[in-house]
């Protein structure tokens, strides 16, 4: 049941990205091109997507966590880190550069695999390689953290 529930969540998430136009790199780049404000070509749609997603998830998270536990899992697995540290800053900066170069972040990149477009496949392979390169480096460090940290600290 957990896998089926997760499949449905992924599907709805995918529909949201598709309907909002966020699977299209050109649409995302239209938002990121802030200098487009000068020429009237700036597209604020991504900000509306974020605002709508936050309105629903902000309220929904509070309501969902009133339950003692999730429906199909033993406990809520919520990120616990609070420190604003160097990896957070450096990683986010690098992520943003990659996002700006192509206009794809992980969700839309994976979703676009459905189009079987060769550049998308290459992007996803490179993205997976980047993830594995990081996680393997993490695992090799002397004081390796428990496996939970490998699976994703924040999301």
């Amino acid at each position: 049941m957990l896998a089926l529930a997760s499949l449905v969540c992924g599907f709805i998430f995918g529909l949201g990205l598709l309907i909002s136009g966020m699977t299209r790199p050109t649409k995302v780049l239209g938002f990121l091109d802030i200098l487009g404000v000068r020429t009237g070509t700036w597209d604020p749609s991504l900000a509306v997507v974020m605002a709508a997603a936050l309105a629903v998830s902000g309220i929904g998270y509070v309501l969902a966590q009133r339950r003692p536990q999730p429906v199909f899992a033993p406990k809520f697995d919520i990120p616990t880190k609070t420190a604003i540290d160097t990896p957070l800053v450096a990683g986010s900066a690098l992520f943003g550069i990659g996002w700006g170069l192509v206009g794809l972040c992980p969700g839309p990149a994976l979703e676009n695999l459905a189009t079987l477009s060769p550049p998308i496949i290459v992007f996803c392979v490179a993205m997976a390689a980047g993830m594995i390169a990081h996680d393997m480096g993490y695992a090799k460090r002397p004081a390796a953290p428990p496996s939970g940290a490998l699976a994703g600290a924040d999301g």
């Binding site: 992520f95 290459v122 992007f123 993830m131």
Partner: peptide, 22 residues
Amino acid sequence: VIAGGLLVGFGARLGGGCTSGH
């Protein structure tokens, strides 16, 4: 395409998340 993919993958892991998670 390749540089973008590598940066997105590595950066998201180092930073602990991406557009959706953070």
